[in-house]
């Protein structure tokens, strides 16, 4: 599903030609199989978010290759990356990243709108998805009118609406209380088991990492493989 080979990344800070180069990732190799839940753990500043941002295409890789779903994505243009993201990836963010001026319904519907799905189909799919995350009663609520847990469920509904095979989650429970956290983790497990969705989760929370089949630790930009907990079921 994901294959990262010899990926290095360094931030350049300061003016051109006088910039400071701060290496973040060093020759990272990572392979995530289809149907896996992989947790990338590490301390703050270890480079785990940078790795996820590179895999998401939010920052452009400098060296190394990233292949997702058999597609070499590290050399894609911004437009092609955007199209690829819309088609193949779902995102769950720590701070939900919902558009405040849009209702829960509109936020969930957004990927369908961007993809150009007809209004009728959009309505069916969006309402079904809201029902699935238990928010069909809140469809016309704005994010500001929802609790943290509800906002995260809207965010998950948005991530799932186009049925992506892979979901990238950045500290998904970071803004949730323990009850909502438990609910979310159960939901992720359910999605993985029932729908076969692959998850790559960035976290420093051991509770979250506990649902992963495999844990990968990043320390000072170097990747260290943890114990294999899962065997890919064919």
């Amino acid at each position: 599903m994901i294959s990262v080979r010899d990926l290095s990344y360094a931030f350049k800070i300061g003016k051109k030609e006088k910039e400071n180069v701060i290496p973040v990732l060093h020759h990272v190799d990572l392979h995530v199989a289809e149907g896996e839940i992989v947790a990338i753990i590490g301390r703050s500043g270890s480079g785990k978010s940078t790795l996820l941002n590179l895999i998401s295409g939010y920052i452009k890789s400098q060296t190394g290759d990233i292949v997702i779903n058999g597609k070499q994505v590290s050399k894609l243009s911004e437009s092609k990356w955007a199209e690829f993201r819309l088609e193949h990836l779902g995102f769950i963010f720590q701070s939900f990243q919902l558009i405040p001026s849009m209702t829960a319904y509109e936020n969930v519907e957004l990927p369908l709108v961007l993809k150009g799905v007809s209004e009728k189909d959009r309505k069916d799919q969006t309402l079904r998805m809201l029902k699935r995350v238990g928010l069909d009663q809140y469809q016309s609520h704005y994010p500001g009118e929802l609790s943290g847990g509800q906002q995260q469920r809207v965010s998950i509904a948005r991530a799932l609406i186009l049925n992506p095979p892979l979901i990238l989650a950045d500290e998904p429970t970071g803004s949730l209380d323990s009850e909502n956290e438990r609910e979310l983790l159960n939901f992720i497990k359910e999605l993985n088991e029932k729908d076969g969705i692959t998850f790559l989760i960035i976290t420093h929370d051991h509770e979250v990492a506990s649902i992963a089949h495999r844990k990968v630790e990043i320390r000072d930009g170097y990747l260290r493989e943890g114990s294999m907990l899962y065997e890919v079921q064919r």
Binding site: A82, I99, L114
Partner: peptide
């Protein structure tokens, strides 16, 4: 909002 849309998959 633009950033969120781009993050989801809106093209430039």
């Amino acid at each position: 909002d633009i950033g969120i849309m781009k993050a989801i998959g809106a093209t430039p």
